[in-house]
């Protein structure tokens, strides 16, 4: 069920209450409770098949929960950045075509002069100026990621959702992306991203929610990422090392047992 929240400053943007969702008789999400506050930069952390993408899809409304509710602030606009692995890179589309297609408030092909100004402003902000007429496949991995962020930003979203934005990218690009997300948050946008990269991404975020079919814990990163929570989330024993002000999560060498979530999430097979 989708409901609207009052548009009050102290109300969250999204409140998910007791959400459950199953697919082909398999429970993917169960009693999920999560709030997304305005101005947050939240990481959804969990193993593969834990239901991270599915949870994002219930927020965008492409999946309907079987039980529970997703309450959203009235008029909330959402920008969605898919996993790069799901993109059809042979599709004939230039950078500007790719970014503009999402602005469906206008249906025609050709952009208005204000749209052109908006487009060039966003491309410049994301360091993509001069690439507008290039095919999306000709870009570097970091540029490709930013094209899809630009596409989401063109809709001026209140909430930006990114699905595994750092999967398969190198260290420099990961830093660049985290820096960009921090900038966007500073400009007033709320951001939720999924990641299974604990050290590269999660520990750099101000807040995380650990998920494995349901939310194990949500809150400030240093409070949530404890050995106990991580073991419950990943089903593996982990330790946290502190070194020169950095927190490093490492697997314990002792025997681990399988997590209760698994890789056989049937919804993941539905990606294009």
């Amino acid at each position: 069920m989708r409901r609207s929240l009052e548009q009050q400053p102290d109300e969250p943007l999204v409140r998910i209450v007791d959400l459950g969702l199953s697919h082909h008789h398999q429970q993917i999400l169960e009693k999920v409770n999560l709030t997304i506050e305005a101005g947050s930069l939240l990481g959804l952390v969990g193993p593969s098949g834990a239901g991270k993408t599915t949870l994002l899809r219930t927020i965008t409304g492409t999946l309907r929960p079987d039980t529970g509710s997703v309450e959203m602030r009235a008029g909330l606009s959402i920008g969605y950045v898919p996993q790069l692995e799901t993109v059809n890179w042979n599709f004939p589309t230039t950078v500007s075509e790719c970014v503009l297609m999402a602005r469906t408030s206008r249906r025609f092909a050709w952009p208005t002069s204000s749209e052109r100004a908006l487009l060039s402003g966003i491309l410049a902000r994301l360091g993509l100026d001069g690439l507008a007429n290039r095919h999306i496949r000709e870009l570097s991995g970091g540029q490709q990621q930013r094209v899809f962020i630009a596409r989401a930003l063109l809709r001026s979203p209140d909430l930006l959702l990114l699905d595994e934005p750092t999967s398969g990218v190198d260290v420099a690009m990961r830093h660049e992306l985290l820096h960009l997300l921090e900038e966007l948050r500073a400009s007033g946008m709320s951001i939720v991203l999924t990641t299974h990269d604990l050290n590269g991404v999660a520990t750099h975020l101000p807040a995380v929610a650990c998920i494995n079919r349901s939310i194990i814990a949500q809150g400030p990163t240093e409070e949530v990422l404890t050995p106990e929570t991580l073991e419950l989330t990943y089903g593996a024993s982990m330790q946290i090392l502190e070194h020169a002000g950095l927190r490093l999560i490492v697997e314990s060498p002792r025997h681990t047992h399988p997590p209760f979530g698994n890789d056989a999430n049937p919804l993941l097979g539905q990606k294009r």
Partner: peptide, 21 residues
Amino acid sequence: IFFYRPLLFTTFDPEVAAASG
């Protein structure tokens, strides 16, 4: 012509098109 962007968006990226409303 009239449905250019919705047609293109749905053809290229149906999942995100649906997520965008």
